[in-house]
């Protein structure tokens, strides 16, 4: 089914089938000049011409952030890597229709990744949130400190207990470091709506992580 979001993921792409990007300044289809730092737009143009180095540079530049986003959204690494792979397959497929300057490539990349994650969560239904186990009920004993790994797991569990769009908002803003305007563009809502999602997410996280916060404070003071 065609959705508005599908169309908006095309922002930045020239939908005309005959259109081609301008050739790169360097000759012979050898990709962008790697002595200077090429822009994303330049790399995408070289990717469209099958330039292997450009493909690798673009992947090296963005893959870690895409995997991180998907991991925050989905809560497990295997699913996150599947989403990241799908994101880059779309980059490879659509590279020749990319229009430099029309949209920011990294924002588009976040939009595709976020939407793929939300689609996965939607397919799983609401049970994905309810099925997430509560953090272990046994409280650490007096003086007992949580191990760093355990604390990290509890934070991730708390994130997974958030409604999907609140999780997306806190992921984009806090973890990915995007501006409120970029987050609003990616989530296709107003800036005010992003702010509302963020406020609710942080309040819920504060409640979910009250115990962990005390533990963390004890650790840092000690």
């Amino acid at each position: 089914m065609f959705r508005v979001r599908d169309m908006q993921e095309d922002v930045g792409f020239d939908r005309r089938p005959q259109a081609r990007l301008k050739p790169q300044p360097n000759e012979g289809g050898r990709g962008p000049d790697l002595l200077t730092t090429p822009s994303d737009d330049e790399l995408v143009a070289a990717v469209a011409q099958g330039d292997e180095r450009a493909c690798r540079m673009l992947m090296d530049r963005h893959l870690t952030r895409v995997v991180a986003l998907a991991r925050r959204m989905l809560g497990n690494h295997a699913d996150a890597e599947e989403v990241a792979q799908e994101v880059f397959l779309r980059v490879w497929t659509h590279a020749e229709r990319w229009e430099p300057g029309r949209a920011q490539f990294s924002t588009w990349l976040h939009r595709v990744a976020t939407n793929l994650c939300l689609d996965r969560l939607r397919r799983k239904g609401t049970t994905d949130i309810d099925s997430i186990p509560e953090p272990e009920s046994e409280e650490p004993g007096p003086g007992e400190l949580l191990e760093q790994r355990e604390l990290a797991d509890r934070v991730e569990e708390a994130l997974q207990r958030l409604p999907a769009r609140q999780r997306a908002a806190i992921t984009l803003s806090h973890f990915q470091g995007l501006t409120n305007i970029e987050a609003a563009e990616i989530l296709e809502v107003t800036v005010e709506a992003v702010e509302s999602l963020l406020g609710r997410a942080r309040r819920q996280l504060r409640d979910l992580l009250a115990t962990e916060k005390e533990e963390w404070l004890r650790r840092t003071i000690k």
């Binding site: 991180a68 991991r71 760093q148 990290a152 934070v155 991730e156 994130l159 996280l205």
Partner: peptide, 8 residues
């Protein structure tokens, strides 16, 4: 606390 979440 949030920054302690696992890094993928």
């Amino acid at each position: 606390l949030l920054d302690m979440a696992p890094v993928a």
